[in-house]
Design a protein around this nucleic acid. Sequence first.
DNA 1: CATGAATGAGCATTCATTCAT
DNA 2: CATGAATGAATGCTCATTCAT
Lengths: 213, 213, 213, 213
Amino acid sequence: MDAEATAGDDRQESVRRFKRDLIRDAAKRVFSEKGIAGASVREIAKAAGYTTGAIYTYFATKEELYAAVLRDSLAALHAEVTTASPDGAVPGGRAEAALRALWTFYDTRRSDFELGFYLYGGARPVGLTRDLDRELNAALDAVMDHIGAGLVADGLASPEEAHHLAVTSATWVFGLLLMTKTGRLRSLHEDAEALLTTYLATLNPTMTRKDRP
Amino acid sequence: MDAEATAGDDRQESVRRFKRDLIRDAAKRVFSEKGIAGASVREIAKAAGYTTGAIYTYFATKEELYAAVLRDSLAALHAEVTTASPDGAVPGGRAEAALRALWTFYDTRRSDFELGFYLYGGARPVGLTRDLDRELNAALDAVMDHIGAGLVADGLASPEEAHHLAVTSATWVFGLLLMTKTGRLRSLHEDAEALLTTYLATLNPTMTRKDRP
Amino acid sequence: MDAEATAGDDRQESVRRFKRDLIRDAAKRVFSEKGIAGASVREIAKAAGYTTGAIYTYFATKEELYAAVLRDSLAALHAEVTTASPDGAVPGGRAEAALRALWTFYDTRRSDFELGFYLYGGARPVGLTRDLDRELNAALDAVMDHIGAGLVADGLASPEEAHHLAVTSATWVFGLLLMTKTGRLRSLHEDAEALLTTYLATLNPTMTRKDRP
Amino acid sequence: MDAEATAGDDRQESVRRFKRDLIRDAAKRVFSEKGIAGASVREIAKAAGYTTGAIYTYFATKEELYAAVLRDSLAALHAEVTTASPDGAVPGGRAEAALRALWTFYDTRRSDFELGFYLYGGARPVGLTRDLDRELNAALDAVMDHIGAGLVADGLASPEEAHHLAVTSATWVFGLLLMTKTGRLRSLHEDAEALLTTYLATLNPTMTRKDRP
DNA sequence: CATGAATGAGCATTCATTCAT
DNA sequence: CATGAATGAATGCTCATTCAT
């Protein structure tokens, strides 16, 4: 009896999780199309095949929905970066691979970058935000550690410098994303790929010397 | 008589300009406190000591208000960057001075960075926007040219590379600003000043070689 | 089970229709009291016992509300005219009956006339308007056809002349309504009923000759 | 001295009247372009070459401005109708000429008809309205008398019937104007001129018999 | 006489959230 | 669990009118 109930609970629980994810993904789609500020709960509900009120069964607040989307995005980012530059890979391009993965991840996804950086930029009401902020930081830190490990493996940094240099280089990638997403790069007639190559070259002085004798 | 009338017109005109600036500055204050998206015309009016309708005597549209604030910000940015790194200065640190000025300008002003970069982030309706976008681009371009000239003067870039390298380095500064403004830097336990120093060092291979023999 | 659900849907649907009609009727009342231009959504909502926002659950736009009221009015007009002068009636007074019904309908309803004729008077923005305009035209045409059929049945017009004469006579009735509703008739010390009788007499030359030997 | 002052007062008075008329005419122009409801005091002022506040030196209220425009329109109407069908003219077409003049006057002027009939149709706030209403009525009455005189002169009515028949026929013309101005005539595929001819024929049984033997 | 800044009430519409069913 | 009606506050903007200058 107890086991059955538990099994039933589990099934119910997993169904609930499934539906929650459905709504979360719908939200993400709407964010991409209308921008984060332009997405209303009504529209997200419609995109998910639900009515407005049903959303609140799964997310107490619009901000919780934001959080779920962001969490999902961060998990995907981590997966992508570690896949692109696995821990066991041979040295020589691990840092570059990680940084390129970081760039590609946000470049190809319409709303993820905005979600991660814009949403918590302003002086917005707090709430669940505190926890979410911690998660965002943890995810970011993990990515930094991965880049740092790559830099060490590639012989571009000592273990002590690793984190500092990882943040330095990731910062540049975020800057490039900002310039691209806001259309400034286009107006400056510069190409993201070319800039990326230039920047990565400065990371590795050996390559730099070879390229410019 | 004629002169008197003209003088009167001038006085009136300058009073108008003064009040317009008052409202613009109030808007800027509200932008800083509530974020740009969260600032309503009502609140701006209240902050300026006016009723809502009065704002429309000076700005036909909320977007025109945005424009005025942004324009003011861009003019100040340009002034600050060129002052910090004058055209006639002796080589040796002109690029660094310009980049540091870029950093300091946005670091010390609460809403200017958001204003310049996020206004065009979403899928917003257009309008006067087109013109404003052009202005923003022109201002940004002028800053890039200035940094580029510094790089050439400092012997860090050939004239052909100047623009490309200027954008590359400014991109990094913008990335740093983004990390700082969103609180990511703090959570990563990194210091903006230290990162800035690290980055500027990589710009100058001579220094780099000295630092890392 | 299925049947129950359907029944539930039906009940809900009919409740919705009922409430929609309630709002529509409240709108009509407000139109009557304040004039169509003077009626605000706020006031209509209050008259219907709702908050402002609730109106938008039933009508996406103020113009849709207009449309619903006008549609209702046109349906009632058509019903009244065809009832007053049924297709199968014996000749001799069918046209007169139809024209009198047209008169009575608009005479006794405060805002219907204004609704039908003034909504498109100004240089208003379009929208759903196009469709609504078509409906109005179709309804008017149907009434004209009915009057025309009466004229033919009564021997007052050949089938070719029917439409032309129907419009001619309906035009007069609309003129009378305009004079009445704007209070001009009263100030000219004329009586609508007497004028109507006079006009109807000119429609039928036989009667005219009898009256004036 | 006294005489001089009076002369001065007169000149001032006539200048004032002149400027008043300027504003009135500007208002009329704006009414024609934007519709009466769509005309704001600001826009009228601009069209007259004044600033907003200046209008209130000449007209205490927007409604007084309406009144002035309407008064002017009524005077013009009276002039046009009496010119088209002078008192001394030979009988035979005087009534028709007057009715045609009535039609042409309102047909060719965009806003006059709306002004005369719409403005005072609704349940609007009163005020100066009472007096204006009387003027409108007097003007209308004069036109009716003129049409009536024509009917008598043309042998279409006895002096006792004159007013009654004048109102009857003018009512039809107003109906035609309403149908035309609101676009209903076009949608019914009827032509104003043809309808007018048809109606005028029914006015004169003699002509009718000749035309349709 | 003329200006134009300022008021204050008003407008249609949107939206996150709640809750009876 | 899901619905969708309802709330209430907010938003950008317009407008007739007033009044100090």
